[in-house]
Nucleic acid binder design. Sequence first.
DNA 1: ACGGTACTTCTACAGGTGTAGAAGTACCGG
DNA 2: CCGGTACTTCTACACCTGTAGAAGTACCGT
Lengths: 187, 187
Amino acid sequence: MRVSTDRRTLLADAAIGVLADAGMRGLTHRAVDRAAQLPPGTTSAYYRTRQALLTALVRRLVALDQAELQEIGARTPPLRSAGEVVRGLVAFTAARLTGDGRRRSLARYACAVESARHPELREILVPRENLARQALCDFLAAQGVADPEERTVTLLTCVDGLVFDRLVNGGSVAEEELRGLVTAALR
Amino acid sequence: MRVSTDRRTLLADAAIGVLADAGMRGLTHRAVDRAAQLPPGTTSAYYRTRQALLTALVRRLVALDQAELQEIGARTPPLRSAGEVVRGLVAFTAARLTGDGRRRSLARYACAVESARHPELREILVPRENLARQALCDFLAAQGVADPEERTVTLLTCVDGLVFDRLVNGGSVAEEELRGLVTAALR
DNA sequence: ACGGTACTTCTACAGGTGTAGAAGTACCGG
DNA sequence: CCGGTACTTCTACACCTGTAGAAGTACCGT
């Protein structure tokens, strides 16, 4: 049994694109075939049920996000000032709102909505530890914040809210807005 | 031409329920018929295209939200302290996370995601003036905040982010979190 | 009472969708 | 060279969906 993990990943990536471009309703086996430029029936062969396809999509999405966040965290020196944190968040939000990051964000929020009804998806989507998050948490702890973990969660959830809004209504997340949130986290 | 606006509203309400319970993929003419307990074909007769159904759904959703916010604003005396604002937001978020408010929230976020791809929906969903929002904005202005409108938008967007998170992952929005956001808005 | 109008219900149908399994192809060990 | 295994592609089909229009029903003014 030599599993061609490449094909499966390719299809999962294509599925993310389809979800971003056509929504949950447009996410079908055949649409993924077309997006991946593979013969019709391919997606159905690798992910026989739609549920399997969606699960693979979500797993891939989380893997991509996690890889990105690990990378950001890895190349970020320990955060020393609120200004540095704000700059980091500006870059982060911008990446989620443009180009490929935007499509992934669209897919992510669509999955998040879906996961409210599907515990098995929620389990995969649940926020995980990663170096970027850790860097932020460490910063809050170093600044003497009492509950750095909780504050990190709240801060990132609010940032997510801003990203979601801009994703839908356009525009970008302003430095000013992020400064406010970071200040609140430090309060 | 005597239009039975009742039937249309009834169907739009049923559609909101279907969307909340079954997602965008489950939102079909026949599913709305069933949810409304009306003979099959009814929804299709009143909203011939799916697009028409979705548009009516979104309009109804906005009307319900707007009515709720006007009512909240109308019975709220002018806000005098951050504590009052926080209490108001606690009640507001709780209402969006339980019972019927929860279902409406699920539908709203699903529509928001959809509207990222559909300008005509976005136009209907765009945040509107209402008495509750006005009360918050007035409070910020009275506290000497420079850009009360912008701060109001940012604050409510962050609150929306918190609600979205709890909607998916469970739990409620803590007073502590809201206090942080309000403090940030006043900063 | 009755004809007409507007509303309601039913039926049809051309696609699309999920899923299964058959047919085809490539490639490795011998 | 060849048989077999695993991967790939094709085909089938039952069901669902969007949409149209016909048939049926209620109710109003006259």
